[in-house]
Design a protein around this nucleic acid. Structure first.
Lengths: 332, 332
DNA sequence: TTGTATGCGTTATCAT
DNA sequence: ATGATAACGCATACAA
């Protein structure tokens, strides 16, 4: 374990430590001949720069912090995966902290990460409001996934939820459905509102009237879908198809259908939103709008890297969903 | 951003930097009065020790590395969550790297983590063989989740797969089933073999004869379950219940049942293994053996912490599954 | 119990 | 293009 230091490498290569540093960081110009010598010495001694010393001296940890609401959950895996893979390519790393879905805990996670001297923060949270985030962004570069804050647009990666829900609804309409309800998320959630707006837009455009009963607000969870279906039943509204606010709500509908002896898609057609892993497993496989989480994560990590370590100006990106046709919608 | 250093704290408190260091690490004895003074000064200046300097000086990064096969996948979330939560409590942190399910990539992940000077390694991998791991363990403490290697038992956290499969099978038998098949994992997987052994043990104990046709090997995936069912059909063997090697295989059975117009549990009873999140979502909800991943992760992280930072000797732990009764098995 | 002094391995500044 | 040297902020051995 006797770590070989830059000094030993410099001696073996017959140069100064500074020169060795120059080649490891290949930032400053080094004559090709000496570079080769140094590289050879590093190789021979199996030299690995001490990251702590690098950080101390350069005042950079080479770590980005990332806080996600939940480490488990079906949604976050691909995002973490994308960020990790991208950063590792640049020899940077992500330190992930869980916010456990609560504002307090999410703030603690941010503090923890700050105390670890991360160079930037990637946030995929639910409980952090815009004021807090604006404050935070004065201290450290922050990148927001799936959250759109005025004033921070350039470091936002967000989804065009309206557009996605519009096309989801359009697909149902194109399949011949006219009695379409929407089981959306709760009002305090931005994306829930955007998705509902997209649904409304498509319905209106098609000249299909909707009433208050057509839109049911519930939690973005399986049990939310169940409750919403009960509410829908109670309302007596007739329908042939459902636009679900997300896939988990759609699963709640599956559950409800199974309990109440309704078949999907024969009796009820349904389209989801997000395309989480499970959508492709469940039976019948769920037709849904694909959320490009992995791409979003990669783009975000790239942007963070480029701005923080290469001073390239950031620019927010809006992503589009894509329709994934599977087996939960029937043609009328 | 002008970070306040230990020097400023020491001046404000009227003590030496060494004393400040002593209170932050509360290892060495400090008079209560001065401790209070120092704490007050730290508070006032909002002092946070520079982790890079700490690492450089103490020769410890206070980071543990963790490599998992996949960051997404239904299985790893709870494990990461448990490790992260536990370590954070101790003000240590986990750096997670993905192995992307390939040996080469997993080794790269290990190298990457080593180059980050982690103090220990938590491994939840598939492609690293015992020889490699034994070699690795000479360089750095490694903790194995869900993998049992001779010579490294004391740092192993593993599941009693045999016992779990035994009780899964027993449950089926207790519900009146006698024609029970097992859709297990592939031969090169340790846990797959152990689970099959448990199945066999329970069957023999109950005096139920099994033939080669009773045990089908397949991949631990949904499509594996599908294939196995096809094979089972071709064999012409009669059965009323299935022990699945894991939940994903069970989902494959669900899929097959849906396609072939068989009902669960009316026509086919099935019990899974692992209790992944989805098991509780799918319809009918899957009866399965719960894998205490979260506990396992917490125990593992605790053990790593205690050994690495407090020199407490480690001791491997064997975990038991527990039966989660839901709706996929019927009583005969 | 507390202070002093040194070292940790690298980068950055300033020369050359 | 390269070398010398001073930080970087903390922990620790040693001294008091």
């Amino acid at each position: 374990m006797s770590k070989t230091s830059i000094i030993e490498v410099s001696k073996l290569a017959g140069v100064s430590p500074a020169t060795v540093s120059r080649v490891t960081n290949n930032a400053a110009p080094v004559k090709e001949a000496t570079r080769i010598k140094v590289l050879a010495a590093m190789e021979e001694l199996d030299y690995r720069p001490n990251t702590a010393a690098q950080s101390l001296s350069s005042k950079r940890s080479n770590n980005l912090g990332m806080v996600v609401s939940h480490l488990d959950g079906p949604f976050y895996g691909p995002v973490m995966s994308g960020v990790e893979a991208t950063l590792r390519k640049y020899n940077k790393h992500v330190i992930i902290a869980s916010g456990f879905g609560e504002e307090k805990s999410e703030k603690e996670a941010v503090d923890f990460l700050l105390s670890r001297q991360v160079d930037g923060l990637i946030l995929l949270t639910e409980g952090l409001d815009s004021e807090y985030l604006e404050q935070l962004s004065k201290k450290i570069p922050i990148y927001l996934i799936n959250q759109h804050i005025d004033g921070l647009e350039s470091r936002n990666m967000w989804l065009d939820n309206d557009d996605g829900a519009y096309w989801a609804t359009r697909y149902l309409i194109d399949q011949g459905h006219t009695q379409i309800v929407c089981l959306g998320g709760q009002e305090y959630k931005q994306d829930a509102n955007e998705r509902i707006a997209g649904y409304e837009r498509a319905m209106q455009e098609a000249g299909l009237a909707i009433t208050d009963q057509h839109i049911i607000r519930t939690e973005f969870e399986v049990h939310g879908g169940l409750q919403a279906m009960q509410q829908l039943l109670d309302s007596g509204l007739e329908y042939t198809a459902i636009v679900a606010g997300n896939d988990e709500i759609a699963f709640g509908v599956y559950e409800w259908a199974a309990r109440n002896n309704r078949r999907i898609p024969e009796d009820i057609s349904i389209i989801g939103f997000d395309d989480i892993l499970m959508s492709n497993y469940i039976s019948p496989r769920l037709t849904t709008m694909h959320f490009p989480q992995f791409d979003m994560a990669k783009v975000c990590a790239n942007m963070a890297y480029q701005e923080i370590y290469n001073k390239k100006p950031p620019g927010g990106v809006k992503f589009k969903t894509s329709l994934v046709i599977r087996d939960s919608v029937r043609k009328i």
